[in-house]
Design a binder for these strands. Structure first.
Lengths: 174, 174
DNA sequence: GTCTATACTTTGATAGAC
DNA sequence: GTCTATCAAAGTATAGAC
């Protein structure tokens, strides 16, 4: 799905998945839309668990935030800037053309935001401000994926991480 | 170009532009890649001028920042969340598949970042921090476009604007 | 020089053989 | 139930009439 929705042809998918194209329609009667929706949900859930695991392993939310951006930067470098947010490309592609898939991407982003909100609340951020901080966290991470991939430069993601860490630090100390 | 690179077929472009498909290849011998590159450069330049105009009309960079995010939110609402960043969708689509277009998108983002860096420097931010602040500004704006379009909710962009305004205020006072 | 018509490929999807 | 073969439509690109 890193090639985007329109860039991922069903024939190509059937080849790399070793499954005949007829089988895809057996398991996903809804065709490409249903296949994409399930893939998005699975990828979105997996990425959320990954981020949760990073926060679980960190002593506090400031360290967790720092580790998230650092891990994103390293993943970008290791994959030659191919492995990034599994939702963003498709989300922008379908935002104005496929209402079904747009809603799926919206639900994933909402789930991520709620997850981060809970983390920040539990970490000492006042509830009224936690949701705002979570939104800034997600937007900054997504912006970092975009700019780092375009420039093939992960230092942008690291720079954004430093900025985000300062923001979380300030929010905790209040 | 709001439909993305792969979502914009040449036949469709020739129809809405009232130009035969043969004419496209007369003016853009390089085919779709060249057409996309020129479109990206034109859109990128136009958007930069738009943002510069907003900052020119504002009394200071704090107000300019606030006006930028507010204008982005209003544009999203007015266009039913279709009119957003003219580069981001294509940038993510081509990042790992078309090196020529990836470089074009990277140059546009770099130009935007330099423009914002100059603005912030002239507005009182210490030079060493201006580039970092400009990167955060752009990443936040791009993240806002993504999340607002997916959710069809411009309050996300406004919320991010408030956060960014606070960051600029802090940077100016130092 | 402009543009019509077409070539060739790939797309998502389906019918039907086994 | 699985998968091969094929469909109609849309993709990019080009040849050639005028």
């Amino acid at each position: 799905m890193q090639q985007g929705y329109l860039g991922s042809g069903l024939k190509h998918i059937s080849q790399i998945s070793q499954a005949p194209i007829g089988s895809l329609y057996h398991f996903f009667p809804g065709g490409k839309t249903e296949l994409a929706a399930e893939t998005l949900k699975a990828s979105g859930g997996a990425y959320q668990e990954l981020v949760e695991a990073v926060f679980d392993a960190a002593p506090d939310i400031v360290s967790g935030t720092r580790d998230c951006f650092q891990a994103a930067a390293e993943t970008l470098r290791r994959s030659d800037y191919a492995d990034a947010c599994p939702i963003a490309t498709v989300a922008l592609e379908v935002a104005s053309s496929d209402e079904t898939l747009r809603e799926v991407t919206a639900e994933i982003f909402e789930s991520w935001t709620e997850s981060a909100t809970s983390r920040f609340t539990a970490g000492g951020v006042e509830p009224a401000r936690a949701r705002e901080l979570a939104t800034v966290f997600l937007a900054t991470l997504e912006g970092g994926f975009l700019l780092s991939r375009a420039a093939k430069d992960a230092t942008t993601m690291e720079l954004l991480g430093h900025s985000m860490v300062e923001l979380v630090e300030t929010a905790v100390r209040r």
